[in-house]
């Protein structure tokens, strides 16, 4: 059973108050009409599925109902940090910049990450 620190409530709460919502930091293409099928398919369906450190979106479903990010290890399940939407993780897989943290101005690059 996880105990998850909600960065908005600023409290540790039980796992059952939360729902995982998949990979974090996925940037929606600014102009979907301009995407190729490949770019749009990548955005919709292709995900990092690392065996190791993973950045995820969770929602405090029966608490404050806000979305936030969690950095978690997918083998040990250890929660390494939680942080608010719009912030960047401080724990990342080496090499220093993980693929999934791409949030450059270049939207296309974001799509591919």
């Amino acid at each position: 059973m996880f105990q998850i620190y909600c960065p908005y409530c600023e409290e540790l709460r039980e796992e059952e108050e939360f729902h995982p919502k998949g990979q974090a930091h996925i940037v929606r293409p600014a102009n979907p009409e301009a995407c190729s099928d490949e770019e749009w398919g990548d955005y919709l369906f292709f995900r990092d599925n690392p065996r190791g450190i993973h950045h995820e979106l969770w929602v405090h479903a029966v608490g404050c109902r806000k979305f936030f990010n969690v950095t978690r290890h997918t083998v040990s399940y250890a929660i390494l940090e939680t942080y608010k939407i719009g912030e960047q993780p401080s724990v990342t897989a080496e090499p220093a910049v993980s693929e999934s943290t791409t949030s450059t101005d270049d939207v296309r690059q974001g799509v591919r990450a």
């Binding site: 059973m1 996880f2 796992e15 995982p20 065996r51 995820e56 997918t74 083998v75 399940y77």
Partner: peptide, 13 residues
């Protein structure tokens, strides 16, 4: 379990 995991164990909830 709703989250990604490779741990070959499930959660109590």
């Amino acid at each position: 379990d709703g989250y990604n995991g490779y741990g070959q164990r499930g959660s109590f909830p």
